[in-house]
Amino acid sequence: MIQAALLLAAALPLASPGAPGEVLRPPDRPVFGSFELRLSGYRPNVDSEFSAGHTPYNDIFGNSRPLMFQAHIGYALWHSFGTLEVGAGAGFFQVTGNGLIVNSTEKSSDKTSLKIIPLSASLTYRFDWAADHNGFPLVPYLRASLERYQWWVTNGLGDTASDGVHTGSGATNGYSFTGGLAFLLDFLDPSMARDMDEDTGIQHTYLFADVTKTYVSDFHSKKSWNLSNDKLVIAGGLLVVF
């Protein structure tokens, strides 16, 4: 398997479908930063705090894994043997189910939702030296992030829920680690990539896939719920470097 991957990696630059003689060139100006759009499945691990038999999240929202949408913008601190970026991200997630009639497991017609705006500040290292200098189209990267999830729960009237004492809204902090691989789309058509660079300032465009492990429970506080994803998150999206 590893041998096959190495062979593929070695063959990729040779297999460039660009016009003969065209090669990817390193940018002739510094990298300013990047912007990415990503989609991932998300299912908060809220039920993990309960003993067996109590699964309020699952009871209302089921075992689905709705999509979380996120946008991230990065600012290049250093660009030499790869790129180091500091960045910030924001997104949105919503899951909706039916409330349960009190003292029953019967679902009511009332809709109830958990809504989350995930905010993050991150440090990203992207090994794009080989892409810049050798036209190698695969770029690995690592990211460490501080996370803050602004959340609120709505009741059947669409208002923020309350149990009569506590209002169902707040924020939960945490952190996450990401590792991924980006595919340099410029590789498919270097001349078009150069034109786009000249016209728009976008130096490179990537498709990426990565895995993230999140820890969002106010740094393992015993007073906060656990909004960490219940599994390693697989995400994908589009990245542009400008």
Binding site: Y57, G99, V102, N155, D163
Partner: peptide, 11 residues
């Protein structure tokens, strides 16, 4: 009828 939304049920 009285209903438990997600927050009420969680609490």
């Amino acid at each position: 009828v009285p209903v438990n939304d997600y927050w009420k049920l969680y609490r």
